[in-house]
């Protein structure tokens, strides 16, 4: 059984999603649920912190692709932070860096949201 955990934190008007463990086709629905509840509560500014994520497959990447337009249509976005090299390489292979913002650190991504107010 894949070990995976999603935790959501509030930092001002931004919601930070912390991912832990293995994000694959089995665990991706859990992340979809998180995005659905954020949208239901009209939270569109999302930072995803990958610090504790060990593994991602295309099922995981597909979740971000499915939700990012909704966030952007509502003056929000999905920004990525604290990604290890292996996980970043998969995003890079699929061309994500030309469509998403990646930050070394969570604070920088939150700052970017706050500066664009």
């Amino acid at each position: 059984m894949a070990d995976f955990n999603v935790n959501t934190r509030e930092v001002g008007s931004v919601r930070v999603i912390e991912l832990k463990g293995y994000l694959d086709a089995h665990t991706a629905p859990e992340l979809e649920n998180t995005f659905n509840s954020l949208i239901n509560d009209a939270n569109f500014k999302v930072v995803v912190n990958f610090n504790s994520l060990k593994y991602i497959s295309s099922a995981g990447l597909g979740v971000f692709m499915a939700y990012v337009e909704t966030m952007r249509e509502n003056s929000g976005d999905i920004k990525f932070t604290n990604m290890n090299k292996d996980v970043y390489n998969i995003f890079d292979l699929l061309g994500f860096p030309m469509l998403y913002e990646f930050f070394e650190d969570e604070d920088l991504a939150i700052q970017k949201f706050n500066n664009s107010l």
């Binding site: 692709m65 499915a66 990012v68 337009e69 699929l94 061309g95 994500f96 030309m98 469509l99």
Partner: peptide
């Protein structure tokens, strides 16, 4: 990838 995002594919 750009088309995919637009069409949520």
């Amino acid at each position: 990838i750009k088309v995919y995002h637009k069409e949520k594919r």
